[in-house]
Simulated assay, not measured.
Amino acid sequence: MLSHLEQLEAHARVLALEQKEKQAEQENLRKMRIKIQQLRARRDELKAKLNAYTLKPIEEIISIQGKDIQTGLQEEENNLSVLQVRVKNTEGILQAFHLTGICAKKIPRGVCISISTAFQGIYLEYYYLNVALRQPPVIMNHNIPVFIPLKELEKQHLASNLKQFLSILSQHLNAYACRRYQAEQLQSRFGARLFGPLEKNSLCNLLILNYNTKVEESHVQIKTQLIYSDITRWLPTDVKINVEDLSASVQEQIKIHQTMFLEKPAHKAFEALLIEEEESMIQHFRAAAE
């Protein structure tokens, strides 16, 4: 028992050193967070302006009227002042979209819109779609995953409300990218603590992980399902945990796990549970040694 306690205390010292390093990193992160908060405040200000602005169909967003770009330019060439005002408004709108992770540029037959995704300041990936300037507008090609309801969103919003179309599509894409990132982090960082690989579906709105946790003197195997019923969110809407042991102490621990997974990103929740278990074991052995 004493040998085991020494091992745990040695492990605790390693954790303490790591904690000091993390404190130095946290100071740098604190400064970065201040900058991020300033940028987010600016982004929110621009979002508010976007919400107050009634966006017109996509043709007018890029200052084009008519069936195609050439026709639009011909119709506007005798009204340069109106065109300049529209261009200025368009640039402001696209700049605001850019700060929210959405940007656009003109292409020969329409506009190319790109949507970037990120998780808590970590850039993940971007998606694009090329929209043809027809009546109504049509998506020509894209790299949006097939399980994102793009066709449905296109029919409902693209021609009538570009702002809403982009906002909802961005929510879907960012939530999916964040769920997938969490699953990847769980597998890469904590795969050794899992029984078998992490299970997930293509949309990553169902994650299943099997692992052990220690309750008092016993190891309990847990099967946890993280369910994301709202696919525009990256936190689960429900957490189901199955165990064979129905004792009161185990059920109490299960509630802790459920709360942790509901409130934190999956990989951070799992890490917090492991740290809590390590600390509990150290306290237990110290009490036993005394």
Rank of each mutant, 00 (worst) to 15 (best):
L29F: 10
S170I: 00
A16G: 01
K49D: 12
N161M: 01
N143R: 02
I113C: 02
R33G: 00
L273A: 13
E216H: 05
N130T: 04
R193E: 14
L99I: 11
R193Q: 14
P265L: 07
E277A: 10
S280Y: 09
K105M: 07
L99F: 11
N201P: 07
G110F: 11
V87A: 11
H257A: 08
C112L: 14
Q65T: 13
A272D: 09
I241Y: 08
T100M: 15
I34A: 14
I139T: 10
K214H: 04
T259K: 15
L99H: 11
N210H: 14
K264A: 10
A96G: 03
M32G: 08
A192S: 13
R30I: 10
L55E: 12
Q253A: 07
H98A: 13
R109S: 04
L206I: 05
L246I: 09
I144G: 05
A41F: 14
R193I: 00
N205M: 00
N242D: 14
D238N: 15
G191Y: 12
I36C: 04
F261G: 06
F195G: 01
E154M: 07
K67T: 13
Q37I: 12
N130Y: 06
L158K: 01
G66E: 08
Y176Q: 03
Q283E: 14
I208G: 00
A288E: 07
A10Y: 03
A183G: 12
